[in-house]
Nucleic acid binder design. Sequence first.
DNA 1: TTCGTTGCAAAGGATTTGCACTTTA
DNA 2: TAAAGTGCAAATCCTTTGCAACGAA
Lengths: 136, 136
Amino acid sequence: MDEQALTDKLLNHAVGVTPQRLRIAAVMLDAPRHLSADQVLAKLNRDGGGVSKATVYNTLRTFTEHGLLREINVDGQRSFYDSTVAPHHHFYNPETGELMDIRADRIKVSGLPQPPDGTEAAEVEVIIRLRKRPAV
Amino acid sequence: MDEQALTDKLLNHAVGVTPQRLRIAAVMLDAPRHLSADQVLAKLNRDGGGVSKATVYNTLRTFTEHGLLREINVDGQRSFYDSTVAPHHHFYNPETGELMDIRADRIKVSGLPQPPDGTEAAEVEVIIRLRKRPAV
DNA sequence: TTCGTTGCAAAGGATTTGCACTTTA
DNA sequence: TAAAGTGCAAATCCTTTGCAACGAA
């Protein structure tokens, strides 16, 4: 995705465009990604710095609030940000910390009970925790 | 559950029995509960103190490691501990922070893709996020 | 006495916030 | 130039750890 496309994407989501946001967008929004704030910061620093930690955190939050990213919590330690915002599910490997997408149409969840009074289901999230397969 | 039953439960899980652990067990293990460490601490303090913050955290972790509790992460802020350790799923209300159990046999998840090489599915976790139902 | 537990306070990591400065519109 | 965004450091929140005192076997 070139700079113009990223710029358009930000503008379409009512997010102001700045050089820092474009750099973060280039890391997060040009392909399916699952990164923590720290990983984004590390990647930017590796490629020449220029974005502060606070700005990375604030920008990821801003992107999330505007529907450009999705926040995922799997381990209570840190949040991951997922560039795929359409509904889908995840494999999670606790040993490597890796998250993998599972397309929503692969998995069928049936038998959902009635949500409690006054509420409705907003989102169904399926996380499949992996473990090493024992040698056969 | 009386003190003797709680004592037995701890011993059955190879957890040493102390007055503090019994108090925490009385809060967490006598019925289905979903509480954060902070909520447990608050409840104990309200009922007369006597357990320190570190001990609450350490004890909840110990209980979890010994299979008396299950840790759940829904919001990246804090961990909840669930006294129901058998597999099951959850409704989560982000507005109230409330978690509700859904019995495992109510929900069927089908179409699970093949786990990545060298791994197998250890656990399938379904979280249904709720939102206020708009007035009709 | 010995080992496991406790409690306090300090340390730790992730994230946010205060505030002056800079950039964008 | 007003409004939005940035960066640094300090602050905050949740959780863990170090270590001396304690308690049960």
